[in-house]
Nucleic acid binder design. Structure first.
Lengths: 221, 221
DNA sequence: GATTGCGTAGGCAATTCTGCCTATGAGCTT
DNA sequence: AAGCTCATAGGCAGAATTGCCTACGCAATC
């Protein structure tokens, strides 16, 4: 939801950074939470929070890269900006390949960091919108019964043969029953035509296969 | 086409690299072309070649990063593996953000480079397939006349109201004429139902907006 | 000047879709 | 046992789609 304020999570083992960074970021209007280590962050992370992670590369217990790996696809909604004291090219490339937003070296101007965080938030907002859009679609599809979903699958997989007669033959039941299911499907999905159904399902499949939300779809069968 | 062998383009100002790299890569079965500078590569680049660029970061006339920038979206079909002697984190991050496949530091094992090149080819193949798929779809849509495309747009934009009567009213012409156009549209696109049309157009729009091929589509209007 | 392609439009008949009714049996919950 | 959802299936009437025909005017092309 866009009414949840976007937070900056600062994870750094260096007390000086934990002191100065939040100060600068709060002055810029960000809401900030601070953690002294990656495990400390993970301890309070319930998988639903979103926001920008500003994270030190090297830390004793768990490095920034390890945290990134640990978060996996959830990191989509936790864009990371790495901060490195002595990190090398190898680490920075790994971080970027792992989907980091950016990777900046100490020392840095706080304005530069702010820029990166704002870019991260822009991306995050996009992803959250996409996720919500998918969730809404999914919700509607979830109201369908198994049989209805089966018919949707069939229609989407093979939109060239969508007369009730053909579908009925395919499923071995009366075309009249297909008509009945069709009506329920359109009603539940709040649409008005089979064409719209195909459009909706196509978008749902494409959008969701690119996010980590792909599951329980009317399957390709 | 996948029958075009995938080439490795080595761009490096260092004669030693221009000597050793191709040797190693050819031994691994790659087809290799060598260039001593970015401009030299660009001189023979006609915008259609695809392949993996193995490129030095620092070069006198034009740096690897400048080449990357210069290629712009065409770089999609020229995945780049950077090689850096003295490059720092800043450059590597810029390269990665610019869409580079990878960024490795000298010295490196040739096996490591080969791995990266193979990953690049895998990605490239995917992108080429996508491009081709889009091109095929586009070709079919291009056969439509202006009026036909207008009707397609209308149907795709508003699949809830697709009866010929409604479209006719919207365009201010007879529903009968819409029927006629519809028939031509289905025929030209080699499909059999309006539902299939919506699916096709939806996929086309989504697929192509993510590539640089988006243009001349049945527009959103 | 004839041909071709395009947009326009109508007729007619077969098929299909849609909406509104009823109805039965299976399976589950209360 | 009663009530619920779901899948099944039919009737019927109005609306829409589809395929196949003809036709005219306009513009470009040969």
């Amino acid at each position: 939801m866009s009414d949840t304020p976007l937070k900056v999570y600062v994870v750094d083992d260096d007390p000086a950074m934990r002191n100065s960074l939040p100060r600068a970021l709060r002055k810029r209007g960000f809401e900030v939470e601070v953690f002294a280590s990656a495990p400390e962050f993970l301890a309070q992370y319930d998988g639903t929070q979103t926001g920008c992670l500003v994270i030190d590369l090297r830390m004793p217990e768990m490095s920034g890269l390890e945290l990134q790996e640990h978060l996996g696809s959830a990191a989509q909604f936790l864009p990371m900006v790495f901060i490195s004291g002595h990190g090398g090219v190898r680490e920075s490339v790994q971080a970027m390949k792992g989907g980091a937003m950016d990777f900046i070296e100490k020392p840095f101007r706080s304005a530069a960091l702010v820029e990166r965080i704002e870019a991260a938030f822009a991306l995050l907002r996009e992803r959250l919108e996409m996720r919500e859009k998918c969730a809404e679609l999914r919700q509607r599809f979830d109201r369908l019964t198994a049989r209805e979903a089966e018919i949707v699958s069939r229609i989407v997989a093979c939109p060239a043969e969508i007369s009730s007669k053909e579908i009925g033959r395919h499923l071995g039941i009366s075309p009249r029953t297909i008509d009945h299911h069709r009506a329920r499907i359109l009603e539940k999905l709040e649409i008005r035509s089979t064409a719209e159904l195909v459009g909706l399902a196509t978008r749902l499949r494409i959008d969701c296969e690119s996010s980590n939300l792909a599951s329980g779809l009317p399957s390709q069968e």
